[in-house]
Design a protein around this nucleic acid. Structure first.
Lengths: 212, 212
DNA sequence: TGAAAACTTGGAGTCATTGCAAACTTTAAG
DNA sequence: CTTAAAGTTTGCAATGACTCCAAGTTTTCA
């Protein structure tokens, strides 16, 4: 019994509600759409919406949550001889070169960010996600290196790498909002990555090299 | 006419409302206090509260807003031969050594952060302020250096320095929450500042040196 | 098949936030 | 000193997010 009917239905319902809501938000903006409208459009009750999502913002940022552990995944998957920083830069470059929608390199991203910036609540929530990336990576680095509880270095490295990620995403968002096409935005992003790597200190670049 | 009765009264009323609200929040937590209660305790109408503050969170974070342009002020006031980074580290060290409440080094800070962490809205807003520090500093660095519009370096330096500031504040908050006294927390913060400076790259450390 | 467990729903209630117009206060001109 | 204009405060009403609850429904499983 890998997954019962119940589980499947739940996931579908959740996805459906999120999709419908996202569509409405992109069309009319975040504040101009009420939960009641989302519920009606998704053909469920208002309470059901709240069964699946804690707050209105989660309806729009649901997908973005997979971003939180992105850097941790990169670091865990780093190759032999590769530092945490090496892995993060390498993987980010791959995403950028592939013009991946995972980092905002797709047509509709401009409108998405427009909606985000259009709402105080949503904008703040984004800053929160950013911080969660750091916390998540900090934990991962500590697990990977077995660093002492009161060693601050992993936190500092996590801060630097999540800054790289956040700055990259922010720049892409900005360029897309300015009307840039994914292709050119991708090329600019690669330069930015180079610049950021050039700005980091040795201690960060060489942290958590995988020996085995 | 430096300031009429009207202006003075407004400032007093605003301060009074903020003080009363802060008191209640510290006592009972953010969500457990309604605007109606704040209004009653401050002896004004609910609408007056909204005349002065955009949202409930602003009642609690009003003071924190002076933090946004802190780094910009440090940079603008940097001495001859001093880089932006030098100035920021120097001034932060001064605040830390002085055990200044401006960076959370006072008894009540633990409770303050407890309340902040206790509310989703409040926590997110803090991340937003953090980002504003960066944006503000970016603008200042561009003004100070006359950097070209599409030069990304000032943004990167601003990102690094606001990271230093945010990490410092975060660490102090964490230690105070863990029950540390301001004195010891101050000493630990100095070490952290050294660690962070050691982690930064040359490009950042030497940016925007004041020659004249 | 017959509950128990898990979902959905309608309805009522709390509270943040906004819009509006009446009532009040301060300012500044006469 | 009086008074109208401008700015401020307030009560009232309404919208919409979010929570609680109790009454159905559906799915699971012994």
């Amino acid at each position: 019994m890998s997954e019962g009917l119940r589980e499947r239905k739940k996931r579908q319902t959740r996805q459906h509600i999120s999709d419908v809501a996202t569509g409405l938000f992109l069309e009319r903006g975040f504040d101009a759409v009420t939960i009641a409208e989302v519920a009606e459009a998704a053909d469920v009750s208002v309470n059901t919406v709240y069964n699946y999502f804690e707050a209105k913002e989660d309806l729009f940022l649901d997908r973005s949550k997979s971003v939180v552990d992105r850097l941790s995944r990169f670091v865990r998957a780093r190759g032999k001889g590769e530092s945490a920083s090496d892995a993060v830069f390498r993987e980010l470059r791959e995403l950028v070169e592939a013009v991946s929608p995972a980092i905002g390199l797709f047509e509709g991203y401009a409108r998405f960010m427009e909606v985000v910036h259009g709402s105080h609540t949503l904008g703040s929530r984004l800053g929160f996600l950013q911080h969660e990336v750091l916390v998540d990576l900090d934990r991962t680095l500590r697990e990977e290196t077995g660093a002492d509880e009161d060693d601050t270095l992993p936190t500092l490295v996590a801060g630097q790498l999540s800054w790289v990620h956040g700055t990259l995403m922010g720049r892409i968002a900005q360029r897309m909002l300015e009307g840039a096409e994914p292709g050119p935005a991708s090329r600019e992003a690669l330069v930015l990555l180079d610049d950021m790597e050039a700005v980091l200190g040795e201690k960060v670049l060489k942290y958590a090299v995988r020996d085995a």
